[in-house]
Design a protein around this nucleic acid. Sequence first.
DNA 1: AAATATCTTAGAACCATTCTAAGATATTGA
DNA 2: TCAATATCTTAGAATGGTTCTAAGATATTT
Lengths: 140, 140
Amino acid sequence: MNNERPYAEALSRLRTASLRPTRQRLALCKLLFDAGDRHVTAEALHSEALAADVRVSLATIYNTLHQFTEAGLLREVVVESGKTYFDTNTSDHHHFYVEDECRLVDIDGGQVKVQGLPDAPAGAEISRVDVVVRVRSAGD
Amino acid sequence: MNNERPYAEALSRLRTASLRPTRQRLALCKLLFDAGDRHVTAEALHSEALAADVRVSLATIYNTLHQFTEAGLLREVVVESGKTYFDTNTSDHHHFYVEDECRLVDIDGGQVKVQGLPDAPAGAEISRVDVVVRVRSAGD
DNA sequence: AAATATCTTAGAACCATTCTAAGATATTGA
DNA sequence: TCAATATCTTAGAATGGTTCTAAGATATTT
Ligand SMILES: [Mn+2]
Ligand SMILES: [Mn+2]
Ligand SMILES: [Zn+2]
Ligand SMILES: [Zn+2]
């Protein structure tokens, strides 16, 4: 879609985030958001960028992912120590985590209800409720 | 309790796990399990051991925590990238995570019901459902 | 007690992530 | 249109939690 102005959407995303439309950010926007919902690690996105002939350093990948997260364009998901996933789906939802493939699968937030949670500890307020359903593939 | 045979409980735990009752493991058992439910990092347990005059290397702390986890005496909880918590509460339960204090608080599993989860992806089976309620302390 | 199996450890290695600071690029506004 | 200024990118070093290595120590078995 929108083949005539391929960067129009990326541009408007960057404007929303008050980030200058650099070559690197525009390219990363397209990689991240043109392909539906994704859960990527910094390393994976870096490889993908290099494979697509987008020259960008790993430092910039990290900078960009964090800037996008602060701007609400991405969400961080932690399911395993030492690996951070960035999620292009920022709506309220949960995850299956396929342990032996290190892969996340979205669970629509609309269906899921978490009932019976006690009040937050004194003086604390809830910022997010994350449900992670760990699953093992049959082949092990 | 059981002041006359202070290592009896630790010994039986190690037997259950088929681990030799070394000085280090016995001491770590006591530190971990004599004080009710705890969520410790390797570094924190190491400091605690040194403070209690238990000479033990960080490598042994990691070895022991993983062996105890494999034996079902501990459970790993991941809430933040780059930090692993070991939980002495191995019953079915969930967690508040107080983000600005990096502290975990148990939520009894009996009260909480997660409803509306879809089937696991084809060929996968659920190994665990983790609910993490992220909270912020009021003072920020 | 000797033989064997297992354990502990210091230090190096590892790996994801962050930092640094110098050169590049984008924006502003004269 | 073109400085002047603000922001961005980057290579390489640093960081911090964790794992590995391999050699000496300890526990168990015979
Ligand atoms: Mn982050
Ligand atoms: Mn582990
Ligand atoms: Zn998601
Ligand atoms: Zn717990």
